[in-house]
Design a protein around this nucleic acid. Structure first.
Lengths: 220, 220
DNA sequence: TTTATAATTTAGATTAATCTAAAAACAAAG
DNA sequence: CTTTGTTTTTAGATTAATCTAAATTATAAA
């Protein structure tokens, strides 16, 4: 059985490898807020356990076994987030911290029951995909709202880097998953967006926000 | 913040102090399946933190602060058990192991939400009282079914030492909380009980079972 | 190509939680 | 009141996870 610490390292490497081509020691250490030597010695342990490949001074890669283990932890995290929102009435900005702890619970039945009760959800409350029981995860190809063309109708499908502050910012503007935006204009100086959406006209969103809103073109 | 280990020691001492007049080092060590020196050194830590009183070679007593901390962990455990049974459809024999882990989650909101959703329950699925937010717990005065008089009608209110095996034994006989027994006879040789209850006539229960069924006299 | 900077590794120490072996203290029985 | 046996404590070691300081290797810049 992996300790919560080991699980957190696997998760960190998993997330970094979905963002970067090369996962370095420093990135892992930063992600987990530990010193480089600490991360270094843990990487040794993970290597011994067959969960990562690593050569001296080289990049860190999950083995198939390590990747599956990591995906199953992400599965527990995201199922938990969905359960907290759908069955316990938490806001999408409240669930990360709780799920961060519950993901380490060792009880297949517990997560199995969540999955059943939720009807085998494919996405968590922030639109991130939930890996299946084999650890397989299908990435959807979303576009940033800030990369779209004015005139299009775009449905919010996921948010990136969904920290509390960002999510509260969206709450304050009544923006939620499946909100359909009509993109009116993108400012050529600062990249800010002007959009219409349910109940809001010509609302202005900063580029920083538009960059993190992942959308699909709305079929009408 | 107390570590899960510290929380487990507090809980063990709390439970032992509700069963024994004198909580000894050996009992604590046994309860937690650790060696006596291990328990000894942790007791020192708890004393330093003001959670227990302990003099060399003396008994171990929770301070008011320690007792409250312990009761709040028990509260989290029992609320969780209730949530698992009432909202996630687990059997009463399945919930202990899961609650044993979830009780260490640090999130007042999470347990607060459970409490609200359950309507501020007073008892867990095994009939044990749930301490309130101040750590206060009202003990009900139950009698063992095996101590009652033949002829009485008795309502099952709680079970003692509710391990899986015992609870499965009750499941097999369709005995659950609030089952009303009519006590027909107690055997003078082996103490076994003959009882009637919903759908069962002249069922025989061993003394071992009767000792663990806590009942109140049914008002008719 | 040399040198400066950044990343990684090694070395050594710390803390929490555990263990075994052995010593000391207590309790109970003769 | 002494002996015997149990309980508790001390002593010393181990493992996982962390740290800082220093040495080494790699990378990038001049």
């Amino acid at each position: 059985m992996a300790s919560p610490t080991v699980e957190n390292y696997l998760k960190a490497i998993f997330h970094l490898s979905n963002q970067l081509e090369r996962v370095t020691l420093t990135k892992v250490a930063d992600e987990l807020s530990v010193s480089a030597p600490t991360a270094n010695s843990m990487i040794k342990t993970l290597k011994q356990d067959g969960l990562v490949n690593h050569k001296k001074y080289g990049p860190i890669d999950l083995t198939p076994e390590g990747r599956k283990a990591a995906a199953l932890i992400v599965r527990k995290h995201r199922l938990t987030e969905m359960f907290l929102v759908e069955r316990m009435f938490f806001g999408w900005e409240e669930v990360h911290a709780i799920a961060e702890q519950i993901e380490h619970i060792q009880s297949p039945q517990f997560f199995e029951r969540m999955d059943e009760m939720l009807g085998h959800p494919q996405f968590d409350p922030h639109g991130s995909p939930i890996p299946d029981k084999d650890g397989a995860m299908h990435h959807h190809a979303f576009r940033r709202l800030s990369d779209c063309e004015p005139g299009q109708k775009l449905r919010l499908s996921a948010v990136m880097e969904a920290g509390d502050d960002f999510l509260k910012h969206l709450n304050a503007r009544e923006i939620k998953l499946n909100t359909v935006f009509e993109l009116l204009h993108i400012d050529s100086f600062d990249g800010s967006l002007r959009v219409d959406y349910e109940g809001h006209n010509a609302e202005v969103l900063s580029k920083m926000v538009g960059d993190r809103l992942l959308v699909v073109v709305e079929e009408t």
